[in-house]
């Protein structure tokens, strides 16, 4: 039973990942990301991490992907990307080679770790079963890791403030970003289109 659930959700996760990799349209890529994230949530359930499974669905599928979709809609960048052209020569073969290297190193490191020198079972924070997972996780977070939890609160506040500062519209028309290949004389005031609404 466990093996069947694992295989089905592994297929869902990997096909979603391939979808993100190969989808021409960013909206489709975002929906494939939801598929992959749901598969990982099922695997968390299989590992008795019930709280994290719920958080995975709520935060990833419910917040992060929706944020992606909001940005796609806001910017109107949902045009299909032409995947046939390869802008940098040899980029894709090199990416496949690097990917094979990453797969080899991570696989060997992870599989050696099973029962290896790092395989000493810890005793300070015992893992409960699926029923009291949320309670045990909450106790661990708010006793042993309470300082880190407070720091994440600070981190989230800084992120929100940073996002607001980044997308704030300044007074006056927006200047186009400088192009690397463009000569300095093409960046004059004459050819700057007035894209912003101003103050």
């Amino acid at each position: 039973m466990d093996a069947a659930v694992f295989i089905v959700s592994a297929v869902i996760v990997l096909s979603g990942a391939f979808g993100v990799l190969l989808a021409r349209n960013p909206v489709h890529a975002a929906l494939f990301l939801v598929q992959s994230v749901f598969g990982v949530a099922v695997l968390f359930l299989l590992l008795d991490a019930t709280f994290l499974a719920a958080v995975q669905v709520i935060v990833y599928a419910g917040a992060i992907v929706i944020l992606f979709l909001f940005v796609i809609m806001l910017l109107g960048v949902d045009r299909a990307e032409d995947l046939d052209v390869e802008p940098i020569a040899g980029q894709r073969p090199l990416a496949v080679v690097i990917g094979a290297g990453i797969l080899g190193t991570t696989l060997s490191a992870l599989l050696v770790a099973v029962g290896g020198p790092t395989g000493a079972p810890a005793t300070n924070a015992p893992l409960g079963d699926a029923g009291d997972n949320a309670q045990r996780l909450g106790e661990a977070l708010f006793t042993d890791h309470v300082f880190a939890v407070e720091l994440t609160a600070l981190l989230l506040t800084v992120a929100v403030v940073g996002a607001v500062v980044l997308v704030r519209r300044l007074a006056g028309p927006l200047q186009p970003l400088p192009v690397a290949a463009a000569a300095p004389e093409t960046q004059g005031e004459a050819d700057t289109p007035d894209e912003g609404e101003g103050a």
């Binding site: 709280f51 994290l52 935060v59 944020l67 940005v71 910017l75 997972n133 045990r136 977070l141 940073g162």
Partner: peptide, 30 residues
């Protein structure tokens, strides 16, 4: 596998960092 809750605690913090990273990154993209 190790019977330790530390893995799940780490995932909790990774989730928070991922959320913050997405917020800032999408702000930059916008």
């Amino acid at each position: 596998a190790l019977g330790d809750l530390g893995g799940q605690v780490s995932v909790f913090f990774v989730l928070v960092v991922a959320a913050a990273e997405v917020v800032v990154g999408l702000g930059i993209i916008v």
